[in-house]
């Protein structure tokens, strides 16, 4: 294990932790500038007496100062206790556990589809520059920039569910994964191709060409490893976008996932749930990005074997 890699890994861990703490504080603060007192809002809807309001405040810990609340919440959260939903009086951790599988499934499938389609298209376009693959990469890019995923979702439903009747709508996993996957592919294919093209200008590629190494081998063996760091950086953006994309897809296709849970909590003013889900999702994204950054450091060929 060389020192540079170790230091880099520690930097990534430190940054990720700082971001998680920062996000928790940010969400906490944002949800506390909500106009009006949550308890008063609940009371006006539920017809509570003043005594009941006081009791509720104590139960929610709202009688303490905000920093105190944050610390208590964080300590509980680390043990997996996110408090109780204001609306349903259910433990939030239970609700999150119930919603997690749907989101993970959709997210993972979309990610796999998107990455393989995006990387595949970029590689094909790099290996056969005069083929239609280049056009395909351009088209993917335009598609993902211009077409919001929920519009594409409706178009797909119209075609595959209503016209062709290939699959049912509710609980459908492949269709939303395809929508998100194409979106992801569009985000990564073009930048990746640009990177590969850039790397092709370099001296080591010229040398390889001069030696008579076939184009396919040059792209896969020499260029791709050097494009990896930027590919991993793109992966970070993709993960963040995926966290947002699953919200609309879950609404559209009737999955009871984390995104849906978050949205319902915002609409129902269930702030304890909003707080928990947003922090959980954002933390997951930050940690995943941290992992990606670490992999990137390990794979970066420039980091060398001697360190």
């Amino acid at each position: 294990m060389n020192l540079a890699v170790l230091l880099g890994a520690m930097a990534v861990v430190g940054r990720s932790l700082a971001l998680v703490v920062g996000i928790a504080v940010l969400v906490f603060v944002l949800l506390r500038i909500v106009p009006g007192d949550i308890v008063e809002l609940l009371a006006s809807e539920g017809g509570f007496s003043t005594g009941q309001m006081e009791q509720l405040r104590q139960e929610l810990g709202l009688d303490r100062s905000s920093p105190e609340q944050l610390v208590i919440w964080s300590i509980n959260a680390l043990t997996g206790d996110f408090g109780v939903s204001l609306r349903f009086q259910r433990p939030i951790s239970e609700m999150i556990w119930a919603a997690l599988p749907a989101t993970l499934q959709l997210g993972a499938l979309s990610f796999v589809i998107g990455m393989s389609l995006g990387i595949g298209a970029a590689l094909a376009a790099a290996i056969w520059p005069k083929s239609p693959w280049r056009l395909f990469v351009e088209a993917l890019n335009v598609w993902s920039v211009a077409f919001p995923t929920f519009c594409v979702g409706f178009a797909f439903i119209l075609v595959f569910v209503l016209w062709l009747r290939w699959m049912p709508l509710l609980g459908n996993l492949w269709l939303p994964a395809l929508v998100l996957g194409i979106d992801i592919a569009g985000q990564i294919a073009k930048p990746l191709l640009e990177d590969i093209e850039e790397a092709r200008q370099s001296a080591y590629v010229r040398t390889a060409l001069a030696k008579g190494v076939p184009r396919r081998v040059i792209v896969l063996r020499h260029v791709l490893p050097n494009a990896l760091p930027s590919l991993l950086a793109l992966t970070g953006l993709v993960l963040g976008g995926l966290a947002g994309g699953t919200v609309t897809m879950e609404v559209l296709f009737g999955h009871n996932g984390l995104g849906r849970l978050t949205l319902d909590s915002v609409l129902g003013r269930d702030y304890t749930v909003t707080q928990a889900t947003v922090i959980v999702i954002a933390t997951a994204v930050v940690l995943a990005n941290g992992l990606v950054a670490m992999i990137g450091q390990l794979l970066d060929p420039r980091r060398g074997k001697s360190g």
Partner: peptide, 24 residues
């Protein structure tokens, strides 16, 4: 710019969701 980093680490739609929840 640490704060900017923080905002960029949040998934965009989620950040907008929380902001709408806060701002109405």
């Amino acid at each position: 710019f640490g704060f900017v980093d923080l905002l960029r680490a949040m998934p965009g739609v989620l950040l907008a969701l929380v902001l709408v929840a806060a701002l109405g």
